[in-house]
Design a protein around this nucleic acid. Structure first.
Lengths: 144, 144
DNA sequence: AGTCTAGTGGGATATTGTGGGAAATAAATT
DNA sequence: AATTTATTTCCCACAATATCCCACTAGACT
């Protein structure tokens, strides 16, 4: 289970170290893909296999499926984790998410996400503001 | 599995190098065929065989099948991958997809696609704009 | 204090992508 | 039919870039 928030560096070679707490679960190669709200998703290869098999399932409408497949597969990349626990972020994905040197890595259950620092802080603020709605949700889940 | 986005050059001899990550799977000859949405599709010979057998499957409506078969078979070409990992793009297919010197090659699971740069960026933008649909899809897949 | 580890930086090496020329093939003109 | 011209294929070379490897620093823990 991937949890927690970490501030890491994307160096000028587009390398980023995975939080050490994620490494065991991540294994020696991961998939970097575009995520929602302008973040990047990092999946384990296992998770990725699930995703791709669901996508190749033709139960989805053909045209939707086509554009979505292109979007995901076309931009995702399988990257090896190097000897220092770092991965390489492709330039196009880096640009898409507006990542600069300082990035935020967060764990979200079965995936990790990479955020532009400001975007993440803004996002958190917005969510925080919706505290009532949040409490409601948590209540529904039975957490509070 | 073919994934990722690469910017390549279509030189004045209509040669284009395949991304090195695709080469192993592509083997030493591939099929270049017209794709949907004005791109070009590149299939492995294996995939091509699957496609052609599906097309000859009579479960498809006869007229649809006939026109689509013409569309595909009529313009598809088997091309060899040269010693440098390059393939030759036939002039007519190049023109059809509005390809110039700078092209985008993307992997889409079982096939690769060649796009005019602008066309691909526009396409991505359209998909990205439909954030709701995107989230929906991801939800269906079980990512969210 | 000393050791260990996580995170980061930088240089050397290997590979990729691309351009261009030579050789081979095809087309054309006389 | 023969020579020239055009076109295609093959091969080599180079530059840019990615990959690998090692080193350093700061902090945690003993």
């Amino acid at each position: 289970m991937l949890i927690g928030e970490y501030t890491h560096t994307l160096d000028d070679k587009n390398r980023m170290s995975l939080p050490v707490k994620f490494r065991k679960e991540m294994g020696k190669s991961v998939v970097v893909a575009p995520g929602l709200d302008n973040c990047l998703s990092i999946f384990t290869t296992k998770e990725w296999d699930k995703i791709s098999s669901k996508l190749s399932d033709s139960s989805m409408l053909a045209t939707d499926n086509r554009s979505f497949s292109r979007f995901m597969f076309g931009q995702a990349v399988i990257v090896d984790v190097d000897a220092n626990g770092r991965i390489l972020i492709p330039e196009n994905l880096k640009n898409r998410s507006g990542l600069s040197t300082k990035v935020i890595v967060i764990g979200v259950q079965n995936r990790a996400e990479i955020w532009n620092e400001k975007a993440w802080n803004d996002y958190k603020k917005v969510v925080e503001k919706q505290a009532d709605a949040l409490a409601d949700k948590l209540g529904q889940i039975g957490v509070l």
